[in-house]
Every structure is written in structure tokens, then in C-alpha cells.
Amino acid sequence: MSQTLLARTTAADRGPRLSSAKRAETAATVLLLALLIVAPTFVSRSTVNDLGQAVCLGLFAISFNLLFKYSGLLSFGHAAFFGFAAYAEALLLQSWPGLPLPLLVVGTVLSTAILGLLLGQVCVRRSGAYFSMTTLTIGAFFYAVAFKWQGVTGGTDGLDSFMPQNLLLLPRWSLDNPGTAQTYWLILAILIPAALAAWALLEWTPWGNAVVAVRSNEKRAAFLGYDTHGVKLANFVLSAALAGVAGALWAIDNGFVSTDSVDLSFSTTVIIVALLGGSGWFWGPMVGAVIYIAVSDRLSALTPHWQIFLGLAFVGIVLFAPRGLAGLVQSIWQRVLTRRGRQNV
């Protein structure tokens, strides 16, 4: 068998007919990530600040969508993991101000993953509305803790003025100016590898195949030898860990942590962001986050009632572009291609 055939006959390959779709998807991925990386060279500083927020929100939405798209589980309390990571990082830094950044992030993400392992045991036992209600309860609980446990979390004041000092390999860089391109790129340097790893895992490996098989028909998967509980639990842990990366980076970008990061309404926002961008594509939620931040910024400058308009726009998307904006772009692109194909005939 030739090398090219070997490369094509992998687990995530959906057969030769669809492999062109897979190629287009990969191209779109590269384009999106390249745009995010070079963006600071041609946008204003305040936009860079927004972008930093957007990519963190985007990774958070991707982590939500890991459960929604690949396991068919709708979490109503995903901010618990995002917020937990943000607070955990702040507390770690309070105890060890000199902790090198990579260790800080790894420690934060690891503790969030362990939290995911503990809570996931309970959550993935049930699916559908039961799963959503369990996650909602967990979300409410974590918000209450952040709000009430003032001695540790600072209550409504939150925790501020924390700044990783020790960037290890980048001694001349500093995070003292949130919103600069330096901070943004530093965030991307952690965010993109984390997201790419999850993408590769779910879209290109037998593991991703297993996760999708369990979602597609849990009963049959079990009788074919899949440990369906274990598969869903592992995906839950990965989702929590990614939410942890997002929360950790968001805290670094902001320089403070508040109850906003565990608020139930933030758990709702992330659902809107993911569906806005399109939950059918791994990177759709990232697109959704960039648009969400851009639009909510413009709208909030125009009217104090911006959330009403955003809500209406969301309903419009759900009704008229159920696959989100990424899905909309894809179907327009496909129509252009077929029309061109017809002209060529």
C-alpha cells in the first residue's frame, strides 16, 4: 500500500468521498489560527485587548462543545470549571508568587481536570435533561461558594492584582500590561497547542472515533465492547481541563478574578457563543466568540439594552442558520463550488 493511501486510511477518515470535506476543514482551521496569530499586527490596541478576551472565551466554548458535539451532552454549568481554574490560579499565585508560568498553568489545569474527574463520575451517569440539571446544580453551587466564601475568594470583590512574574523562558517579557500584543501572543502560545491537541485527538484518532461511536449509539457501542461510561467520563475530564486552560489564561489576561467567571449566566453565554459560531465544527465556537465579543462591544456602546438585541440575533441564528455562522459560511462556500463546478462542465 502506498504512503498516501496509508495516510488517508486512518480512523477519522469518513471515506474517500468525504475526505475532501476533511481537507477543507483542515484548511479552514489553519486559516482561522493564522488570522488569530497575525491579527495584532493590523488592529488597534483596544481590539487586541478584546481579542485576548475572545480567544479565552472561544476556548471555553470549545470545551463546552467537546461535550455537546462529541458526547451529545448539554452542560448548563460549565462556568464551574472555568471559574474554578481562574480562582485556583489566583490562589496558587498568592501562595507562590514566584511560580513559573508553565508550572502555574499546568497546576491549575491539572486541578481542574481532577475536579472534572470527581464531578464527571456523577454527571455522565445520566444523559439528556438529567445531565443538564446536574451540571446546572453544580454551576449554581460553585457560584454560591465563590460568592459566599469571602475569606478565600474575596466574595464580590474577587481577587485582583495577581500577575505571574516568572515567565521562565521569556525573561524580558512581562504581563504588566494586559491587552498588549505580547500578552495576547503569550496566551495564544498556550491556547493554540491545547486546542489543537484536542482537535487532533477528537477528529483524527481512534479515540475520537470511540467518543463519537458512544454518542451515536451507546447501547450498541457497549455490546461491541466499548466502556461507554469510561469514554464519556474521559471526554468530560478533557472538557473540564480545556475549560481550565481557558479560565487560567483569561485570569492572566485580565489580572483579576471575579464571580463573573463562575456566574450561571456565564454558563449560558458559552452556550450562545458555541451555537452562534456553530457547534458542528470543532472551531465553530472560537468563531462564535470572536463575533460575540465584537458585536456585544459595538452594541453595548450604542444601547444599554444590548443584550436584548444580542438575544434576538441569537434566536435568528438558531432559526435561520441552525449550524451557526461557520455552518452558514460552509454551505455558501459549497454552493459557490457546485455552481463553479457546473459552469466548468
Partner: peptide, 21 residues
């Protein structure tokens, strides 16, 4: 889905082309 599981390759977290072909 049936064969990856049967060969114990169903949780491989990488694309092992040589094993998957």
C-alpha cells in the same frame, strides 16, 4: 467501530497509520 475495538486500538490517542491500515 467493531474492528478498532476488537483489535484493542479503539482508544489510541494518536494516528498510528501502520497499525490502523
Amino acid at each position: 467501530n467493531a474492528l478498532l475495538r476488537h483489535r484493542g486500538l479503539h482508544v489510541l490517542p494518536w494516528r498510528a497509520a501502520a497499525r490502523l491500515a
